[in-house]
Design a protein around this nucleic acid. Structure first.
Length: 564
RNA sequence: GCGCCUGUAGCUCAGCUGGAUAGAGCAUCGGCCUUCUAAGCCGAGGGUCCCAGGUUCGAGUCCUGGCAGGCGCGCCA
């Protein structure tokens, strides 16, 4: 709002001074003494115009239309910055806009309605989801939402790697536990699955087929074991994801690529490109032509296709299904696949850099300063389900999102389980609930709070100005977070917003300064503050919604703490 | 050895396309509760931004070279 007015005023001044093209960058100074908005445009133009920055800045100030820019005053500072101090009315000018847009405040159209596929989780159906999957589920879903909020048509997809040696290991692990239940000696194969859930799968199998496969390790039996294990584990993963509030538009099965001949047609297409050669009886793709460190095998000596080939076939379907933009989320241990998959696709004529990757580091859990180890293959790992049971879905999702994806995540259980405002999730939710509480106390319906007829210029206290400015920055934050695929930017914003809200709210506590209470005696200021409170509620609710975190209208105090 | 990621306060981390005195939370210390819910509030201390060069009016941010940690380098997925 105010930013647009200032920009227009600056452009006007520069035009008068004969400067046609200038990139005007406005920023919000950290130091309040530097005003509400600042620009370095005089510094960046100085050398081009052969003048001193301060000189230039001073001339600009003399010619500037203050009122049109919504500013009370403009100062030249430091080496030649222009600092704009806005009028209270200009700062609060964002409020009518926020209230009008309501659920849609923050939405943008940067994507222009283009479609984009976001692939995430993509766990093998070989066990329950662990915390790495949880982080990826939270990230993928939040990035998808950010894209939706910035004008993209998002398709959320889960790729099931339901083929290959891991599946065989799973089947043989289940087989071993099944034989054990029948009192026979059997061992989990090397590198097999040791987890408790494998025993559960065996028990389920026993219920269904009794001892029909006693001592029988024929391929048909192992197929049966695999089938059952995959079915049950997929159901379990689906249920976990549903409870984690993540929904997919499509589940794509790796096995279907074999069934419908796509793997075969892809290898044929690649063979026509000239990037393919035979060596040691295997079929290779010259991925080094596209920056890979070494060439890759597509078809093994025994004639079976590699995972790599299926991966290329799979990503080709994304392009063929019309997705000109595709984002893949993977653990950073998969970064080796990035170049080779892109290489395969480039060989087929797809553009460089397709698909885009967001790689995230692993999660470790700490409790009382001690690391809690978990490892999928060893079988003693913390599952997403267990974590959610402990801290709740809201906290789990937020904690997974609050750090940038490429940084290792330490999940601090002590903070996560704290229900005070030390926990950032609760801090934000409290701020939201407080606004709702004020509406109840005031006896007004939220939707009836409007800006018409109010003097928003009454919101002149520094805490109110800060808060209104903070709220105004929400759309830009969403845009930035979406463009950089970085939900943590939004977390940071919401936490800052909650800080500003809570400072403002507490300043009006009767024990401190009742004059600053939202529900002040004066009807004019009371109305303006209610409008600000509603705007706060809108921004926090929309922001939490993007992250998939709930925005409660009241916070329930648990029994034990009630009596504490 | 090669490649990717990370290195900022005691701890966990922000820092947008290079901008003014590097920020937050936790922890520590000091002050404060019969509350628009004190599950909190106000304030203070705390930094060679891993190191060394370079580009720039200006570098935590960009470039080069190191150091440290994580991950990857299968005819596994």
């Amino acid at each position: 709002m105010s930013e647009i007015l200032i920009r227009a005023a600056l452009e006007g001044v520069l035009r008068e001074m004969g400067v046609q093209e200038a990139e005007i960058r406005l920023e919000r100074p950290r130091d309040p003494a530097h005003g509400d908005w600042a620009t370095n445009v005089a510094l960046s133009l100085a050398s081009r115009l052969g003048r001193s920055p301060r000189d230039l800045a001073e001339e600009m100030v003399r010619n500037l239309d203050l009122a049109a820019a919504g500013a009370d005053r403009v100062e030249v500072a430091g080496p030649g910055f222009l600092n704009f101090h806005l009028s209270a009315g200009a700062v609060a000018g964002i409020l009518p806009h926020i209230l009008l847009r309501d659920q849609d405040f923050g939405r943008g159209d940067q994507g222009g309605g283009q479609s984009v596929m976001v692939e995430f989780v993509s766990a093998n159906p070989t066990g329950p989801l662990h915390l790495g999957h949880g982080r990826q589920a939270a990230l993928g879903d939040a990035i998808s939402s950010l894209l939706e909020w910035t004008g993209w048509a998002v398709h959320r997809e889960f790729y099931y790697n339901d083929t290959g040696s891991q599946m065989d290991l799973l089947a043989r692990s289940v087989w071993a536990r099944y034989q054990e239940l029948l009192g026979l000696e059997a061992e989990i194969p090397e590198g097999g699955y040791q987890g408790e859930y494998v025993r559960d799968l065996a028990s389920r199998l026993l219920e269904e087929v009794a001892d029909r496969y006693r001592g029988d390790s024929s391929p048909e039996t192992l197929d049966k074991m695999r089938e059952l294990a995959v079915r049950i584990l997929r159901e379990e993963q689906d249920r976990d994801l549903e409870e984690f509030r993540v929904a997919f538009d499509e589940y794509y099965l790796e096995s279907s690529l074999y069934a419908d001949g796509r793997v075969e047609s892809t290898v044929q297409a690649l063979q026509e490109t000239g990037f393919v050669y035979d060596r040691d009886e295997a079929l290779w793709l010259r991925t080094t032509d596209f920056g890979d460190q070494k060439d890759r095998v597509m078809v093994r000596r025994d004639g079976t296709p590699t995972y790599f080939l299926a991966d290329v076939a799979y990503h080709l379907t994304k392009w063929e299904r019309g997705f000109r933009h595709a984002i893949n989320l993977h653990g950073s241990d998969h970064h080796g696949t990035v170049t080779r998959v892109r290489a395969g696709l480039q060989a087929l004529g797809l553009p460089e850099g397709y698909p885009e990757y967001v790689l995230h580091q692993m999660v470790t859990v700490e409790r009382e300063g001690r690391e809690v180890r978990f490892s999928k293959r060893s079988g003693s790992y913390t599952t997403l389900r267990e974590l959610c049971a402990e801290v709740g879905v809201d906290v789990a999702r937020y904690f997974f999102l609050m750090r940038k994806p490429e940084a290792h995540l330490v999940f601090d259980l002590d903070v996560a389980m704290d229900q005070s405002e030390k926990n950032p999730v609760y801090k934000i939710q409290y701020a939201h609930a407080r606004m709702c509480s004020i509406f109840r106390k005031a006896g007004v319906e939220e939707d009836d709070i409007r800006c018409e007829g109010l003097d928003l210029g009454g919101l002149s206290h520094p805490l109110e100005r800060e808060l209104a400015k903070q709220l105004a920055g929400f759309p830009e934050i969403l845009e930035r977070a979406a463009a950089s695929r970085a939900p943590h930017v939004l977390c940071e914003f919401l936490e800052q917003t909650a800080n500003a809200v809570n400072s403002w709210y507490h300043a009006g506590n009767p024990s401190r300064d009742p004059e600053l209470a939202v529900l002040a005696a004066d009807p004019g200021i009371r109305g303006a503050r209610l409008a600000l409170a509603r705007a706060v509620r809108i921004v926090l609710r929309n922001g939490l919604g993007v992250l998939g975190v709930s925005a409660p209208v009241r916070m329930e105090r648990s029994e034990e703490e009630e009596h504490a």
